[in-house]
Simulated scan of single mutants.
Amino acid sequence: MSGLCLSRLCVSRTLHCLLRPAAESKSGSSFLDRKFFSNSPLAFSDNNNSQEGTNSKKAPRRIFSGIQPTGVLHLGNYFGAVRQWVQTQNENSLFSIVDLHSITLPQDPKALKENILKMAASLLACGIDHEKCILFQQSKVPQHAELSWVLSCLTTLPRLGHLPQFKEKSAKMTDIPLGLYIYPVLQSADILLYKATHVPVGEDQLQHIQLAQHLARVFNNKYGPIFPRPSAVVYDESASRLKSLRNPDKKMSKSDPDAKSRIELTDDPDVVVEKCKKAMTDFTSAVTYDPAIRPAVSNLIILHSLCTGLDADRICHENQHIDTAQYKLVVAEAVNEFLRPIRHRYMELLKDPNYLISILDQGGARAADIAQETWREVKSAVGLTVSS
């Protein structure tokens, strides 16, 4: 069986488990909280039973999500995650630039420092408001690593070895760093440290949220009820279906070696035009939407739709008089119009690195207040607190 088939089978089995009736789950709540439309604000269902720990009290609703400091966001990042963060941000939302995760693969220290600030600027330019939510740098809160060690003592090598992302990332490596193997435990610590009840993720991260649920249950059973059971929040497919401009079978990704496969939020207008002109299409000149038969052209229509709010039918109707080569220029114009205010705000923010650092420091202090309280509970429960 091919790797693709195995991957599909794995996702199918995972989703089957996720969507089982609550009565089949020991904890009484489904793994997957709900799917949401990408153009709608996130509105969590009140019937989610996320309280598993915290002394059987209902855990306060809290969102946690993290993003690696890969530099500047691309449109796949924005429409797949960040836009929803902006729509749902409040005082119970924590968004972390997870720099500890980034060093599981080789990093240039100078570039990493710059990328942390670039990511902060990108998030703020997209509408993350550090006064409404908590935006912080992961490594500024040492309890992430401390809780990760406790949780690593509760999991097993086979459990981690079955996670698909490790297999994918290590497939071409000869010397595999330990951090790459155990980073899902750190990811669980990121979530549980803040007693998060809702975690926005892509479908490729669902099994990692299952690990966080597993570790919360194991810890609570062994040491007492401290952690609530986090629920994965997967947005509707319209939020995450933006694909590579060069290969519509792959998602738009920063790791793609072909820079023309993605549009970054800071791309100059001329660069956006060039990338759209180089985007893959097919041998049919008409502008029609059919993801199954014409995935490349449909991907351009999705990009156009996401940037303008127009639906696919209207886009096809308005562009029925032109061919796909001309349509690429229409898409480029729409993308540039959408990116103009984000690009301007990003460049302004990047001129003042001290301002960005101060925002991350403030967010780190607020995050630390929550983390320290959780860590105090964990230390006491595990037996690490000794007093006279």
Rank of each mutant, 00 (worst) to 15 (best):
S358Y: 00
V185Q: 03
S387D: 07
Y346D: 03
H214E: 14
Q89W: 12
S244H: 05
L42I: 15
D99Q: 06
T197K: 03
S388G: 10
P142H: 11
E203L: 15
I209V: 14
I103P: 01
L349A: 04
P158L: 08
R366N: 15
P353A: 08
K250A: 12
F37G: 08
E318T: 05
A212C: 03
K35I: 14
V86E: 05
S27Q: 12
V141G: 06
D175L: 13
Q205I: 02
R13V: 06
R241A: 12
S298G: 10
D258E: 07
L310F: 13
N92F: 13
L135V: 09
N354D: 11
K260I: 01
R61T: 12
D267H: 10
K35V: 14
V185N: 03
Y346L: 08
K110M: 10
K113E: 10
H304T: 04
G3A: 13
A216F: 02
E168T: 11
V233I: 10
C17L: 11
C10V: 08
S380V: 05
L154V: 12
H304P: 03
S27T: 14
L112F: 04
C5T: 09
E146T: 10
I370L: 15
K250H: 15
V82T: 06
Y235H: 09
G224D: 04
R34K: 10
Y289F: 06
P228A: 11
K195T: 05
G161T: 07
L42F: 06
T70F: 00
R376M: 01
G224T: 04
R246C: 10
H74D: 04
K243Y: 04
L242A: 04
F37W: 12
I63W: 00
R366K: 15
D249A: 14
